[in-house]
Simulated assay, not measured.
Amino acid sequence: MTWRALLTSGLVCFCAGGLYGWSALIAPLQAAYGVSTAQTGLVFSLAIASFTLAVILTPQLPWQTSTPRVVACFGLLGAACVFAAVRAQGYVPFLLWFSGGFGAASGGIYIAALGVAALTPAHRIATPAMVAAFGTGSAVFGPVWRVMDAYGVGMGGLSMLAAGLLMSSTCAAFAAAPAISEKAQPPAGSSAAHPSESHSRKDLVVIWAVFAFGSFGGLMVLGLASKMMDAAQTSLTLASFGLAGIAIGNTSGRLSVAFLSSHLRLEQCLFLAMAMTLYGLLSAAFPAGPAMLCVALILIATGYGIVASTVPVVTRSVFGAAGFQKRFSFIFTAWGVAGFFAPWAGGAMFDASDSFRLPLLISALAAVFCCLMTWQLGRQMAQSDT
Protein backbone atom coordinates (compact mmCIF):
# COMPACT_ATOMS: atom_id res chain seq x y z
CA MET A 1 0.00 0.00 0.00
CA THR A 2 1.20 3.47 -0.89
CA TRP A 3 0.66 4.97 2.57
CA ARG A 4 2.70 2.18 4.19
CA ALA A 5 5.58 2.69 1.75
CA LEU A 6 5.58 6.44 2.43
CA LEU A 7 5.25 6.10 6.20
CA THR A 8 8.02 3.53 6.64
CA SER A 9 10.36 5.30 4.22
CA GLY A 10 9.61 8.58 6.00
CA LEU A 11 10.55 7.08 9.37
CA VAL A 12 13.91 5.91 8.03
CA CYS A 13 14.41 9.33 6.41
CA PHE A 14 13.63 10.99 9.77
CA CYS A 15 16.36 8.94 11.47
CA ALA A 16 18.82 9.67 8.64
CA GLY A 17 18.26 13.37 9.28
CA GLY A 18 20.08 12.90 12.58
CA LEU A 19 23.25 13.43 10.53
CA TYR A 20 22.45 17.16 10.47
CA GLY A 21 22.02 17.33 14.23
CA TRP A 22 25.71 16.54 14.48
CA SER A 23 26.78 19.81 16.15
CA ALA A 24 25.24 18.63 19.46
CA LEU A 25 27.91 15.89 19.60
CA ILE A 26 30.93 18.16 19.17
CA ALA A 27 31.58 18.48 22.92
CA PRO A 28 31.21 14.71 23.60
CA LEU A 29 33.55 13.94 20.68
CA GLN A 30 36.19 16.31 22.03
CA ALA A 31 35.85 14.78 25.48
CA ALA A 32 36.10 11.24 24.09
CA TYR A 33 39.07 11.68 21.76
CA GLY A 34 40.66 15.00 22.77
CA VAL A 35 40.38 16.46 19.26
CA SER A 36 40.47 20.08 18.14
CA THR A 37 37.56 22.17 16.87
CA ALA A 38 38.96 21.90 13.35
CA GLN A 39 38.92 18.09 13.61
CA THR A 40 35.30 18.11 14.77
CA GLY A 41 34.47 20.32 11.78
CA LEU A 42 36.12 17.77 9.51
CA VAL A 43 33.63 15.14 10.72
CA PHE A 44 30.67 17.07 9.27
CA SER A 45 32.53 18.22 6.13
CA LEU A 46 33.39 14.64 5.19
CA ALA A 47 29.88 13.48 6.08
CA ILE A 48 28.41 16.05 3.66
CA ALA A 49 30.82 14.89 0.95
CA SER A 50 29.83 11.25 1.51
CA PHE A 51 26.14 12.21 1.59
CA THR A 52 26.33 14.11 -1.71
CA LEU A 53 28.32 11.35 -3.41
CA ALA A 54 25.73 8.75 -2.36
CA VAL A 55 22.89 10.91 -3.69
CA ILE A 56 24.67 11.10 -7.06
CA LEU A 57 25.63 7.42 -7.32
CA THR A 58 22.57 5.64 -5.90
CA PRO A 59 20.35 6.20 -8.99
CA GLN A 60 23.15 4.74 -11.14
CA LEU A 61 22.84 1.32 -9.47
CA PRO A 62 21.67 -1.42 -11.89
CA TRP A 63 18.32 -1.95 -10.16
CA GLN A 64 15.25 0.03 -9.14
CA THR A 65 16.17 2.17 -6.13
CA SER A 66 12.84 3.95 -5.57
CA THR A 67 11.54 1.30 -3.18
CA PRO A 68 11.10 1.05 0.60
CA ARG A 69 13.32 -2.05 0.61
CA VAL A 70 16.24 -0.10 -0.84
CA VAL A 71 15.57 2.58 1.78
CA ALA A 72 15.66 -0.20 4.36
CA CYS A 73 18.98 -1.57 3.04
CA PHE A 74 20.62 1.84 3.36
CA GLY A 75 19.01 2.23 6.77
CA LEU A 76 20.44 -1.06 8.04
CA LEU A 77 23.84 -0.08 6.64
CA GLY A 78 23.55 3.25 8.46
CA ALA A 79 22.61 1.54 11.74
CA ALA A 80 25.65 -0.77 11.49
CA CYS A 81 27.95 2.18 10.80
CA VAL A 82 26.57 4.21 13.72
CA PHE A 83 26.94 1.25 16.10
CA ALA A 84 30.54 0.84 14.90
CA ALA A 85 31.18 4.58 15.38
CA VAL A 86 29.96 4.37 18.99
CA ARG A 87 32.43 1.57 19.68
CA ALA A 88 35.34 3.17 17.77
CA GLN A 89 38.57 3.21 19.75
CA GLY A 90 39.99 6.37 18.15
CA TYR A 91 39.18 9.50 16.18
CA VAL A 92 40.15 8.12 12.76
CA PRO A 93 37.97 4.95 13.03
CA PHE A 94 35.10 7.15 14.24
CA LEU A 95 35.60 9.45 11.25
CA LEU A 96 35.50 6.52 8.83
CA TRP A 97 32.41 4.89 10.34
CA PHE A 98 30.37 8.04 11.01
CA SER A 99 31.38 10.44 8.25
CA GLY A 100 32.16 7.90 5.56
CA GLY A 101 29.72 5.09 6.41
CA PHE A 102 26.71 6.80 7.97
CA GLY A 103 27.13 9.90 5.78
CA ALA A 104 26.89 7.76 2.62
CA ALA A 105 24.03 5.65 4.02
CA SER A 106 22.11 8.82 4.89
CA GLY A 107 22.50 10.10 1.33
CA GLY A 108 21.28 6.79 -0.07
CA ILE A 109 18.26 6.89 2.25
CA TYR A 110 17.43 10.45 1.20
CA ILE A 111 17.45 9.94 -2.58
CA ALA A 112 15.72 6.52 -2.36
CA ALA A 113 12.98 7.89 -0.08
CA LEU A 114 12.42 10.86 -2.40
CA GLY A 115 12.13 8.37 -5.24
CA VAL A 116 9.39 6.52 -3.34
CA ALA A 117 7.52 9.80 -2.85
CA ALA A 118 7.93 10.70 -6.54
CA LEU A 119 6.15 7.49 -7.61
CA THR A 120 2.91 8.41 -5.85
CA PRO A 121 0.03 10.29 -7.52
CA ALA A 122 0.09 12.90 -4.72
CA HIS A 123 3.80 13.57 -5.19
CA ARG A 124 3.37 17.32 -4.59
CA ILE A 125 2.35 16.46 -1.03
CA ALA A 126 4.49 13.36 -0.50
CA THR A 127 7.79 14.89 -1.68
CA PRO A 128 7.74 17.96 0.62
CA ALA A 129 6.63 15.73 3.49
CA MET A 130 9.61 13.41 2.88
CA VAL A 131 12.03 16.36 2.72
CA ALA A 132 10.49 17.72 5.92
CA ALA A 133 10.87 14.33 7.64
CA PHE A 134 14.59 14.46 6.99
CA GLY A 135 14.83 18.04 8.30
CA THR A 136 12.76 17.17 11.37
CA GLY A 137 15.25 14.46 12.26
CA SER A 138 18.02 17.03 12.63
CA ALA A 139 15.77 19.30 14.70
CA VAL A 140 14.87 16.44 17.08
CA PHE A 141 18.08 14.45 17.48
CA GLY A 142 20.30 17.49 18.06
CA PRO A 143 18.47 18.83 21.14
CA VAL A 144 17.97 15.30 22.52
CA TRP A 145 21.70 14.59 22.25
CA ARG A 146 22.48 17.88 23.97
CA VAL A 147 20.25 16.90 26.92
CA MET A 148 21.69 13.37 27.04
CA ASP A 149 25.22 14.80 27.11
CA ALA A 150 24.25 17.02 30.04
CA TYR A 151 23.38 13.80 31.91
CA GLY A 152 26.76 12.27 31.07
CA VAL A 153 25.69 9.94 28.25
CA GLY A 154 28.28 11.41 25.84
CA MET A 155 28.85 9.60 22.54
CA GLY A 156 26.54 6.83 23.73
CA GLY A 157 23.67 9.03 22.58
CA LEU A 158 24.38 7.81 19.06
CA SER A 159 23.10 4.37 20.09
CA MET A 160 19.58 5.83 20.12
CA LEU A 161 20.00 6.86 16.47
CA ALA A 162 21.29 3.41 15.52
CA ALA A 163 18.33 1.75 17.26
CA GLY A 164 15.91 4.05 15.46
CA LEU A 165 17.47 3.23 12.10
CA LEU A 166 17.34 -0.49 12.88
CA MET A 167 13.65 -0.50 13.88
CA SER A 168 12.40 1.80 11.11
CA SER A 169 14.42 -0.03 8.44
CA THR A 170 12.99 -3.37 9.57
CA CYS A 171 9.48 -1.96 9.06
CA ALA A 172 10.40 -0.52 5.64
CA ALA A 173 11.82 -3.86 4.50
CA PHE A 174 8.30 -5.36 4.57
CA ALA A 175 6.58 -2.50 2.71
CA ALA A 176 5.79 -2.95 -0.96
CA ALA A 177 6.90 -0.32 -3.46
CA PRO A 178 4.14 1.96 -4.75
CA ALA A 179 3.25 1.33 -8.39
CA ILE A 180 3.52 4.20 -10.87
CA SER A 181 -0.09 5.05 -11.55
CA GLU A 182 -1.32 6.91 -14.60
CA LYS A 183 -1.74 10.03 -12.49
CA ALA A 184 1.90 9.85 -11.44
CA GLN A 185 3.12 9.87 -15.03
CA PRO A 186 3.20 12.82 -17.41
CA PRO A 187 0.59 12.80 -20.19
CA ALA A 188 1.62 10.69 -23.14
CA GLY A 189 1.74 13.63 -25.52
CA SER A 190 3.54 16.07 -23.21
CA SER A 191 7.16 17.10 -23.57
CA ALA A 192 7.81 15.70 -20.09
CA ALA A 193 6.90 12.23 -21.36
CA HIS A 194 9.36 12.37 -24.25
CA PRO A 195 11.61 15.39 -23.68
CA SER A 196 14.15 16.19 -26.36
CA GLU A 197 17.80 15.99 -25.34
CA SER A 198 18.33 19.74 -25.75
CA HIS A 199 15.14 20.58 -23.86
CA SER A 200 16.08 18.17 -21.06
CA ARG A 201 19.58 19.65 -20.76
CA LYS A 202 18.25 23.21 -20.70
CA ASP A 203 15.75 22.40 -17.94
CA LEU A 204 18.47 20.68 -15.91
CA VAL A 205 20.78 23.70 -16.12
CA VAL A 206 18.06 26.17 -15.11
CA ILE A 207 16.80 24.07 -12.17
CA TRP A 208 20.41 23.51 -11.07
CA ALA A 209 21.01 27.29 -11.05
CA VAL A 210 17.77 27.91 -9.14
CA PHE A 211 18.79 25.40 -6.47
CA ALA A 212 22.38 26.69 -6.17
CA PHE A 213 21.59 30.40 -5.94
CA GLY A 214 18.32 29.92 -4.06
CA SER A 215 20.09 27.90 -1.35
CA PHE A 216 23.10 30.19 -0.95
CA GLY A 217 21.74 32.59 1.67
CA GLY A 218 19.96 29.89 3.65
CA LEU A 219 23.02 27.67 3.85
CA MET A 220 25.14 30.61 5.01
CA VAL A 221 22.66 31.33 7.79
CA LEU A 222 22.37 27.68 8.84
CA GLY A 223 26.15 27.46 9.02
CA LEU A 224 26.92 30.82 10.64
CA ALA A 225 23.75 31.87 12.50
CA SER A 226 25.28 31.41 15.95
CA LYS A 227 28.33 33.49 14.96
CA MET A 228 26.07 36.21 13.53
CA MET A 229 24.17 36.41 16.80
CA ASP A 230 27.40 36.57 18.78
CA ALA A 231 28.66 39.40 16.57
CA ALA A 232 25.40 41.29 17.24
CA GLN A 233 25.85 40.72 21.01
CA THR A 234 22.58 38.81 21.26
CA SER A 235 21.68 37.62 24.76
CA LEU A 236 21.84 33.90 25.55
CA THR A 237 18.06 33.63 25.95
CA LEU A 238 17.30 35.47 22.70
CA ALA A 239 19.97 33.49 20.84
CA SER A 240 18.43 30.21 22.07
CA PHE A 241 15.00 31.28 20.83
CA GLY A 242 16.56 32.44 17.57
CA LEU A 243 18.30 29.13 16.91
CA ALA A 244 15.12 27.21 17.74
CA GLY A 245 13.18 29.51 15.41
CA ILE A 246 15.66 28.86 12.60
CA ALA A 247 15.17 25.08 12.98
CA ILE A 248 11.38 25.47 13.08
CA GLY A 249 11.39 27.87 10.12
CA ASN A 250 13.53 25.54 8.03
CA THR A 251 11.32 22.52 8.75
CA SER A 252 7.99 24.35 8.40
CA GLY A 253 9.18 25.92 5.14
CA ARG A 254 9.87 22.46 3.74
CA LEU A 255 6.51 21.11 4.84
CA SER A 256 4.56 24.18 3.67
CA VAL A 257 5.23 23.34 0.02
CA ALA A 258 2.63 20.56 0.26
CA PHE A 259 0.05 23.33 0.84
CA LEU A 260 1.58 26.08 -1.28
CA SER A 261 1.96 23.94 -4.41
CA SER A 262 -1.78 23.21 -4.39
CA HIS A 263 -2.60 26.94 -4.47
CA LEU A 264 0.34 28.43 -6.38
CA ARG A 265 2.35 27.52 -9.43
CA LEU A 266 5.72 26.03 -8.55
CA GLU A 267 7.66 29.04 -9.80
CA GLN A 268 5.44 31.24 -7.61
CA CYS A 269 6.47 29.13 -4.60
CA LEU A 270 10.09 29.88 -5.47
CA PHE A 271 9.36 33.60 -5.88
CA LEU A 272 7.73 33.60 -2.43
CA ALA A 273 10.81 31.88 -0.98
CA MET A 274 13.12 34.45 -2.56
CA ALA A 275 10.97 37.35 -1.33
CA MET A 276 11.31 36.03 2.23
CA THR A 277 15.02 35.40 1.75
CA LEU A 278 15.74 38.85 0.31
CA TYR A 279 13.80 40.63 3.03
CA GLY A 280 15.60 38.56 5.67
CA LEU A 281 19.06 39.09 4.16
CA LEU A 282 18.65 42.86 3.87
CA SER A 283 17.18 43.08 7.37
CA ALA A 284 20.09 41.03 8.74
CA ALA A 285 22.61 43.24 6.94
CA PHE A 286 21.08 46.37 8.49
CA PRO A 287 19.38 45.09 11.68
CA ALA A 288 17.45 47.38 14.01
CA GLY A 289 18.69 45.27 16.93
CA PRO A 290 19.41 41.69 18.04
CA ALA A 291 15.70 40.77 18.06
CA MET A 292 15.28 41.99 14.47
CA LEU A 293 18.37 40.00 13.49
CA CYS A 294 16.81 36.81 14.90
CA VAL A 295 13.57 37.44 13.01
CA ALA A 296 15.53 38.05 9.81
CA LEU A 297 17.48 34.80 10.21
CA ILE A 298 14.26 32.85 10.79
CA LEU A 299 12.80 34.32 7.57
CA ILE A 300 15.90 33.30 5.63
CA ALA A 301 15.75 29.76 7.03
CA THR A 302 12.05 29.48 6.13
CA GLY A 303 12.73 30.65 2.57
CA TYR A 304 15.53 28.10 2.32
CA GLY A 305 13.18 25.36 3.51
CA ILE A 306 10.67 26.25 0.78
CA VAL A 307 13.42 26.08 -1.86
CA ALA A 308 14.66 22.73 -0.51
CA SER A 309 11.20 21.16 -0.99
CA THR A 310 10.09 22.97 -4.15
CA VAL A 311 13.12 22.01 -6.25
CA PRO A 312 12.51 18.22 -6.03
CA VAL A 313 8.81 18.82 -6.76
CA VAL A 314 9.78 20.87 -9.83
CA THR A 315 12.19 18.14 -10.93
CA ARG A 316 9.46 15.50 -10.62
CA SER A 317 6.95 17.70 -12.49
CA VAL A 318 9.32 18.41 -15.38
CA PHE A 319 10.89 14.98 -15.86
CA GLY A 320 8.21 12.63 -14.53
CA ALA A 321 8.43 9.81 -12.01
CA ALA A 322 10.67 7.57 -14.13
CA GLY A 323 13.30 10.26 -14.71
CA PHE A 324 13.19 11.86 -11.28
CA GLN A 325 15.99 10.11 -9.41
CA LYS A 326 18.73 10.42 -12.03
CA ARG A 327 17.87 14.04 -12.82
CA PHE A 328 17.61 15.07 -9.17
CA SER A 329 20.87 13.34 -8.29
CA PHE A 330 22.57 15.76 -10.71
CA ILE A 331 20.57 18.79 -9.57
CA PHE A 332 21.47 17.99 -5.96
CA THR A 333 25.12 18.82 -6.71
CA ALA A 334 23.96 22.47 -6.76
CA TRP A 335 23.20 22.14 -3.06
CA GLY A 336 26.65 20.66 -2.48
CA VAL A 337 28.36 23.56 -4.29
CA ALA A 338 26.33 26.16 -2.38
CA GLY A 339 26.84 24.29 0.88
CA PHE A 340 30.60 24.39 0.43
CA PHE A 341 30.97 28.01 -0.69
CA ALA A 342 28.31 29.83 1.34
CA PRO A 343 29.50 29.21 4.94
CA TRP A 344 33.17 29.22 3.93
CA ALA A 345 32.94 32.46 1.93
CA GLY A 346 30.80 34.09 4.61
CA GLY A 347 33.32 33.19 7.32
CA ALA A 348 36.27 34.36 5.22
CA MET A 349 34.64 37.73 4.45
CA PHE A 350 33.76 38.19 8.12
CA ASP A 351 37.39 37.54 9.10
CA ALA A 352 38.53 40.14 6.55
CA SER A 353 36.00 42.87 7.43
CA ASP A 354 34.81 41.95 10.97
CA SER A 355 31.25 42.26 9.65
CA PHE A 356 28.66 40.01 8.02
CA ARG A 357 27.23 42.85 5.95
CA LEU A 358 29.22 42.04 2.78
CA PRO A 359 28.44 38.28 2.69
CA LEU A 360 24.75 39.02 3.39
CA LEU A 361 24.62 41.49 0.51
CA ILE A 362 26.34 39.00 -1.80
CA SER A 363 23.76 36.41 -0.73
CA ALA A 364 21.06 38.94 -1.65
CA LEU A 365 22.56 39.23 -5.14
CA ALA A 366 22.48 35.43 -5.40
CA ALA A 367 18.78 35.52 -4.46
CA VAL A 368 18.12 38.12 -7.18
CA PHE A 369 19.85 35.88 -9.72
CA CYS A 370 17.71 32.98 -8.47
CA CYS A 371 14.62 35.09 -9.22
CA LEU A 372 15.82 35.60 -12.81
CA MET A 373 16.42 31.86 -13.22
CA THR A 374 13.00 31.14 -11.68
CA TRP A 375 11.37 33.46 -14.23
CA GLN A 376 13.15 31.53 -17.00
CA LEU A 377 12.06 28.23 -15.46
CA GLY A 378 8.45 29.41 -15.39
CA ARG A 379 8.63 30.25 -19.11
CA GLN A 380 10.06 26.85 -19.96
CA MET A 381 7.44 25.01 -17.89
CA ALA A 382 4.67 27.04 -19.57
CA GLN A 383 6.06 26.14 -23.00
CA SER A 384 6.13 22.46 -22.03
CA ASP A 385 2.44 22.59 -21.09
CA THR A 386 1.39 24.06 -24.44
Rank of each mutant, 00 (worst) to 15 (best):
L243W: 09
A244V: 15
A244F: 14
A244T: 15
A244K: 04
A244I: 15
G245H: 11
I246V: 15
I246N: 03
I246H: 04
A247N: 12
A247T: 14
I248P: 07
I248D: 10
I248N: 02
G249P: 13
T251I: 11
T251Q: 13
T251H: 08
G253H: 03
G253Y: 05
G253A: 08
G253R: 05
L255Q: 12
L255D: 11
L255K: 06
S256V: 09
V257K: 04
V257A: 07
V257W: 08
A258G: 10
A258F: 00
F259D: 07
F259G: 14
L260A: 05
L260K: 03
S261A: 15
S261Q: 03
S261M: 04
S261R: 03
S261V: 06
S261I: 01
S262T: 14
H263S: 13
L264Y: 02
L266M: 10
L266G: 10
E267Y: 15
E267I: 09
Q268E: 08
Q268K: 11
M274G: 06
M274E: 08
M276A: 07
M276T: 04
M276L: 14
L278E: 02
L278Q: 03
L278W: 08
Y279L: 13
G280P: 11
G280L: 10
L281R: 04
L282T: 11
L282K: 02
L282I: 12
S283V: 12
S283Y: 06
S283N: 08
A284N: 06
A285P: 06
A285R: 08
F286N: 12
F286G: 07
P287S: 09
P287H: 01
A288Y: 04
A288M: 11
G289V: 00
G289S: 03
G289A: 02
P290C: 02
P290K: 02
P290S: 07
A291K: 10
A291W: 05
M292G: 15
M292A: 15
C294L: 13
A296W: 01
L297D: 10
I298Y: 00
I298K: 00
L299Y: 07
I300W: 06
A301C: 11
A301T: 14
G303W: 07
G303M: 03
G303K: 05
G303C: 04
Y304E: 11
G305I: 06
G305Y: 00
G305Q: 05
G305V: 03
G305A: 05
G305R: 01
V307M: 05
V307N: 05
V307Q: 06
T310M: 01
T310E: 01
V311G: 01
P312N: 02
P312R: 00
V313E: 01
V313D: 03
V313S: 03
V314A: 13
T315K: 01
T315Y: 12
S317F: 06
S317D: 14
S317L: 09
V318G: 13
V318C: 13
V318E: 14
G320R: 04
A321M: 06
A321N: 02
A322H: 12
G323N: 14
G323K: 13
F324T: 04
F324G: 00
Q325N: 15
Q325M: 15
Q325T: 15
Q325Y: 08
K326A: 15
R327T: 15
R327D: 13
R327K: 14
F328V: 02
F328C: 04
F328L: 08
S329G: 11
